[in-house]
Nucleic acid binder design. Structure first.
Lengths: 357, 357
DNA sequence: GGACCTTTTCAAAGCGCTTTGAACATTTGG
DNA sequence: CCAAATGTTCAAAGCGCTTTGAAAAGGTCC
């Protein structure tokens, strides 16, 4: 059933039917009702491709999905997607994923732009050497960034969380608790969020008069394996009098590995070591789901997804103008993995001896 | 730059250019090269909506994304998506996600069918009371199911793993190791995969002459929390002489929780309890990433995603005909969490006393 | 009742592509 | 050298919708 058939059936012009269906005012209520009822009854739905061609609007938002050997979509993405999807539903837009390997990303954006398959895109996982912003701008694709480039002055719209503030506050808490030897198991510092977090740590240490050279900083993809590996490296062979007593961790998955290392080394939280983890609020892995409940910096990545969708739709429709830069504060939620730094005396040595066996 | 402009530029008809670009034979090599070069140089890409309208093909595959309060996309989905994306790239198709709450799922498929926005869909998370197969068939949307309904005789194409065989084999291993009190922390038995798995467990027990009433079976969404909760319920207050010694777990996330419970209860793997987990091969959470490396039934959900995409594209293009039903075998990978059932004597009691303190 | 608005409907022209059927150009075979 | 066969290009007709500009219908007022 297409428009023409319906129009013949109703003995009305295609124009009138189109207008009735799309809520234009220049059609009488009586005919509108008649049309609506007939469309419903015959299950008429406009062909989306024809409509897209005629209007130039695609009714969907796009994302270039990184794929390939070295790229793993991680669970962060699925949570983000959930939020996005929820809002997309409300706004009746679809989400179109264009897979592309990292090296051919630019090509994917070119294709998107030329083919008009989506109305706008969102960018995420912003990198230090971010190319995409100027690219999509050049291509004239409306966009919204999740996260931001290192130099935020460039004047584009984004949504980000206050990574710098979050890790500043977390670090300050550790410092106030008397920790003076800190380790930071960070995400990949090719991404700006990791750089911002490091900046936050450094700012807090500097403000506290602690030389930043004392920070043990490691950068790697946020997963269990790396958490375990780096925690083992940091704690296995290290003199208990000099090893870190406070750890900052970039994600729940990283912490999963760190905790495994701690268990293996018989280090106890928070007696031997305190840890603060960033929590993106996964429904499938919660900070309460650890034997010692995790102290976290918390920000729902799902909520960010919903908001991104909302704003991107607004940007596309022109409701949101200019380069709105939205930065969400991050909660610091104190649970059980943070405590006073262990005393340097007998106790620490005792534990160390135990761990060595 | 559109086709008309390009044709004027080259002083060729739109027909010729279209054919040159789409690789039709009735165009001379010389003109084809000329056209290709000019298209490249001016960055011409056909408008995808116009092409879709003209051909009736959408160049994308669809998925109805479940959203809403009670629905969480879980990490399984993101891995599946990675695989799908990889193959989608190779075949140059996009992936279109239509969000819909569970109650309005049917409506979403109707919209997809009427609007012709995708060429085919895949269905996943098949339920016992599966409605979608007959629906999409009625609507005439080409489809491929990931998983299968309870009665597989209905004659539709699917890809599934041998859940029944996997859990049969896992159970048989436990039985051969002397375990006689088994627990199965299953996924939600509203889904068929969980039913198939339960069938596998039952078949193995029956074959071994163990009454199935002795199986402690629990069904819940596969996450850390439920794993922990159910393991605590199973093991906390139970007489060590009667509590389970062998556990089957539906996912890595479930096992994360089970292991937490075991740690808390001071139960040791495999001395006090053996456990076999289904592993979907997540790059971010591996069976080796447990203090005691997990024995697993293994099947890559990512590979399934890639294969689904491949076959769906074939189905759409007519290369794959008929109702091909593909079932993948599942590996049983023995690592360190499986061992002989503990003897009923002194040792088990000793441990129990310890756990009780 | 006719002039003048306002409301409602319509025919037709796109949107940018693919594809059909015909025309023109070039080879080939006898 | 001409007819047939083959190779190459083209004009025009869709695909199914939206939207413009004009026409028809219905009200209002003096």
């Amino acid at each position: 059933m297409n428009l023409k058939q319906l129009s013949e059936l109703l003995e009305l012009s295609q124009t009138t039917i189109s207008r009735a269906l799309n809520g234009y005012p220049e059609v009488s209520e009586r005919t509108r009702l008649k049309v609506l009822e007939a469309a419903q009854r015959h299950g008429y739905k406009p062909n989306s491709n024809a409509r897209k061609l005629a209007t130039g609007r695609a009714g969907s938002i796009g994302y270039v999905l990184p794929v390939g050997r070295n790229v793993d979509l991680d669970p962060h993405f699925v949570e983000f997607l959930s939020g996005l999807g929820e809002h997309a539903l409300a706004r009746e837009v679809d989400l179109s994923l264009t897979p592309a390997p990292y090296e051919r990303e630019a090509e994917a954006y070119h294709r998107i732009a030329a083919s008009r398959s989506v109305d706008g895109v969102y960018l995420s996982s912003m990198r230090n050497d971010e190319q995409r912003i100027s690219l999509v701008r050049k291509l004239g694709i409306p966009f919204l960034a999740h996260g931001r480039a290192l130099i935020p002055a460039e004047g584009y719209a984004f949504l980000d969380i206050d990574n710098e503030g979050a890790f500043h506050d977390a670090t300050r808490l550790l410092l106030h608790l008397g920790h003076t030897r800190l380790a930071f198991i960070n995400g990949d510092t090719d991404f700006t969020f990791a750089v911002h977090r490091l900046n936050g740590v450094i700012r807090a240490m500097t403000a506290h008069g602690l030389p930043i050279e004392t920070l043990q900083h490691h950068s790697a993809a946020m997963n269990e394996e790396n958490g375990y590996r780096l925690a083992m490296a940091l704690f296995r062979d290290t003199d208990p009098a000099t090893r870190p007593t406070g750890v900052l961790s970039a994600s729940m998955f990283t912490t999963l590995g760190i905790v495994r290392a701690f268990n293996q080394l018989r280090l106890r939280m928070p007696d031997d070591v305190s840890i603060i983890t960033h929590d993106d609020v996964f429904p499938f892995l919660k900070p309460e789901s650890f034997t010692v409940q995790l102290t976290t910096t918390r920000s729902s990545i799902r909520a960010a997804g919903a908001r991104i969708c909302e704003r991107l739709v607004d940007i596309i429709s022109g409701v949101e103008a200019g380069a709105v830069q939205e930065i969400w504060p991050v909660d610091l939620v104190v649970r059980a993995t943070t405590g006073p730094a262990p005393a340097e005396g007998k106790r620490a040595r005792g534990r160390a001896a135990e761990a060595a066996e």
